[in-house]
């Protein structure tokens, strides 16, 4: 098989893989749709507990939003570097993304721990159940994203930046941008919505 045809075959495979990953993201979006729908229906049922505006801190939520937004931005810059084949820049930008994502995750865990300490557990009422499940699912995705960044960066350090790695990074950055978009709605509906 000629080199050119092999390359064409690879390009088609990449195109298909990216499309497939996009379809996966759509299924993820639908899973979040259920969680948002459930939250929208149940958030008023804060039986035996506090309502959102007595529990949430807007400045904290804003900090989390900015962390995630910035990480989405640095992830995009890392992707540009990856397409240009600049390994060192890729490691730096995705490293920054990792740190920002980790900071976000720690803030979220801290918020969860504080809520549970106050007795606002997921078992308390429907509002808390839907809140913890929605944010927990997003947090779980962030955790998976962080693991993924770590694994990819590890392989890049070991094997260098070949086209397989660029494909992995492209999927990773789609995933990360997607999580940021989901967070916009969590910030808007859950946090700011509680103060309306």
């Amino acid at each position: 098989m000629s080199h050119e045809r092999l390359e064409h075959h690879e390009a088609e495979a990449t195109d298909r893989a990216m499309f497939g990953f996009w379809l996966y993201l759509m299924t993820d979006l639908l899973m979040f749709a259920i969680l948002f729908g459930v939250y929208a229906v149940l958030h008023g049922n804060a039986i035996g507990g506090e309502e959102g505006r007595h529990l949430f801190s807007l400045p904290l939520a804003l900090t989390e939003t900015l962390l995630l937004l910035t990480s989405s931005f640095t992830c995009g810059l890392g992707m540009i570097a990856a397409r240009l084949g600049k390994k060192k820049q890729v490691l730096t930008w995705f490293g920054v993304t990792f740190v920002l994502g980790l900071a976000f995750l720690l803030l979220e865990i801290d918020e969860f721990v504080k809520l549970i300490d106050e007795g606002q557990t997921p078992q308390l009422n429907a509002f808390m159940s839907s809140f913890f499940t929605l944010l927990g699912t997003h947090g779980l995705h962030i955790t998976i994203g962080l693991l993924w960044i770590a694994a990819t960066l590890g392989y890049i350090m070991k094997r260098g930046l070949n086209h397989h790695m660029v494909r992995k990074l492209a999927m990773l950055s789609l995933f990360w941008h997607f999580l940021d978009i989901v967070w916009i709605f969590i910030f808007t509906i859950v946090y700011m919505g509680a103060f309306v």
């Binding site: 299924t27 997921p122 078992q123 159940s129």
Partner: peptide, 28 residues
């Protein structure tokens, strides 16, 4: 995906004691 997520919620209700679809605690 809608089925998977709904099943997760059912399981959370059963195993973790959340209140999505229960009669108590504001579930529906």
């Amino acid at each position: 995906p809608l089925l998977s997520m709904t099943l997760f919620l059912v399981y959370f209700d059963r195993a973790l004691g959340t209140h999505f679809f229960t009669t108590m605690g504001g579930g529906d």
